[in-house]
Amino acid sequence: MGEIIEIRWHGRGGQGAKTAALLLADAALGEGKHIQAFPEYGPERMGAPVQAFNRISEEPIRLHCQVTNPSIVVVLDTTLAGTVDVVAGLPEDGIILFNTAEEPAAIRKRLSIKGLKIFTVDASGIAKEKIGRDVPNTPMMGALIKVTGLLDFDRMLEDNKKKLTKKFRNKPEVIAGNIEAIETAYQEVKSE
C-alpha cells in the first residue's frame, strides 16, 4: 500500500468545493495518479457549510471510508473558521490554505492556530477581477498546487483549459478568466 495523500475542502454550498475536488482529481488522473473525489452529503443548501475530499496516490486506492486525518485542508470561505473546526484531524506538519486577503501570520493569530503550515491567497478577489464573480474554487487550485507540489502546474493548467473549453464552449471569456485566475493565485499565494 503506497502513501495516500488526503485533502479536505471546506466551503459553503454553491462555492464549488465539490467541483474543485473533482477538477483536482481529474487533473491528477491525467498525470497517471490514482484518485478519489467525493463530497460529504448532508442537508446541503446555498451558503451552508459543506466539505469535499480527495485521495491521491501513486498506487491503486481501495479505501472507501471517510477522510478524517487529511494532511492538507483548503478553506474556500474563511468565515467558516468561526463555526467549523477547519483544522480537525490535521497532523502537526499539515498544510492549511485559506481564501483571504489577510497574511498567514494574522490568520494564525486571529484563529489561534498552533503548528501547521499556513498559506493564504485572495482567491475571491482574484476571481472577481479575472472571472467577474466570486468563484474562488479554480484559483484556490492554482494556489494549492503551488504550496503542495501535488501536480505539475503546467499540465494541470492545460487539463483545466481542456475541461473548461468543453463546459463553456459559448463563453470563451470564462475560460480565459479562469485560467488567468489560476495563474495569478499560483503567483500570489503567501506563506509565513
Partner: peptide
Amino acid sequence: TDGFIISHAMEA
C-alpha cells in the same frame, strides 16, 4: 453499488 460511498465518489 453502495449509495454515496460509490455512487457519488469519483474514482479512476
